[in-house]
Nucleic acid binder design. Structure first.
Lengths: 220, 220
DNA sequence: GATAAATTGTACCAGATGGTTCATTTGGTC
DNA sequence: GACCAAATGAACCATCTGGTACAATTTATC
């Protein structure tokens, strides 16, 4: 096994580049998201991510430490994003039933429009949410959506529109489940039942069903 | 690189064993299920499966060809199992509303009691159900549950209990979503909201909510 | 323009991993 | 009990893969 003893490197090209830390970070994160979303944590290949990147593998380790650090960064960014989305909802001015229907619709759409997010959550659940647990960024946040729901629900009960005795978390889980499942299980549903829930002629109907189901769950 | 030229093996132990093809298959499948369920397809290690097995890695390749073949076998067995479960349901004698509530309850329980199945379906969806697609065993079957639902629903509509105009698939997807989500996303739900949906003091409530939600979706 | 810290390039590697080679044993059949 | 296909054992290997060593270049600061 002919040992190449520290090669000469005489002809090292003196090449030039401009620094761009933020750009490099972005480029890596984008490539990583694509790769992780497609292949999962263990299925993703660092070399593959590096290849998709504008820079090199070296930079991945420089900025993110290791594969899991990169994965965590991708997860954190995605949770940041949906948190901003949830915060951006402004439903306080609407009557409770309209507010809730709108929230359900928005949530459904967010999932349908962001299958990457859904897949990432699936992958993270396969790993027992181990990386969510160790992420300091995510720990303290993300309960706001429950507060939003609780407030709307309370108003609805007060106005006699909603029946009392339902937990806000239960409402959220129902909305999420109905929004998540079509996307997360799209492939197996298509395989088993022959229907593509993401198809433009089917999605709207499923959307309406989801909203109706939530509203019927709540109505007095 | 010192080539070890076919070592002597003089002292090869003449050891004895009894043949047990079915037992070996079973042992491998069981070990594989545990490993795949925990780590996914790419995360699972063949050596690890072999170690959990009563036999050797050699046998895995002998019986299942390669890692994916083994994975496919595990998937097929799990789908077989739920299919048998669905076939075993006998709801024809019950009034439509009771039948549907019972179906929803059974489905919820099956998911809650078989997180392995849920995880496997998640994993398969991460892989775009590629292995379901290439499995000849699964292709032709598994529509029966839709027929069961359609029949119950029709009776319900005829008796004026259910509102008309709902697709059987939509009913199934709603039941599935509400049964699947708590299990599939249990880890992230606990992480984000601090509630363990699998805990014995929470599960029954969620179960009832799921059933109620389905019934309210259907009622005229 | 000297200096140090931040950033990037190139080549490389040790260990893990899926899969195989070759030989042997077992059990049914005639 | 000879024969053969099915079943099993033990060691081995080529390749992939996450991660690093080492050094160079750039940029901010003074």
């Amino acid at each position: 096994m002919e040992k190449t003893v520290t090669p000469p490197r005489t002809d090292r090209k003196t090449q030039s580049w401009t620094q761009d830390p933020e750009g490099v970070r972005r480029s890596i994160l984008d490539a990583a998201r694509i790769e992780f979303v497609e292949h999962g944590l263990s299925g993703a290949r660092v070399d593959e991510i590096a290849a998709k990147t504008a820079t090199s593998k070296r930079m991945i380790y420089y900025y993110f430490g290791d594969k899991e650090g990169l994965y965590r960064a991708v997860i954190e960014e995605m949770y940041d994003r949906i948190r901003r989305f949830e915060r951006g909802l402004d439903l306080g001015a609407l009557p409770p039933d309209e507010a809730m229907a709108k929230l359900a619709g928005f949530t459904f759409d967010y999932h349908a429009d962001n299958p990457d997010f859904v897949r990432m959550v699936m992958i993270e659940n396969i790993h027992h949410a181990r990386h969510l647990a160790t992420s300091t960024k995510i720990a303290t946040l993300n309960l706001s959506i429950i507060d939003v729901i609780r407030e709307i629900y309370k108003r609805g009960v007060a106005e006699g529109l909603f029946r009392p005795g339902i937990e806000a978390l239960d409402i959220h889980l129902t909305i999420s489940a109905l929004s998540f499942y079509n996307v997360s299980n799209r492939a197996s549903i298509r395989q088993v039942f022959g229907h593509d829930m993401g198809a433009p002629d089917i999605l709207p109907q499923r959307r309406q069903t989801a909203i109706d189901t939530v509203m019927r769950m709540l109505r007095a």
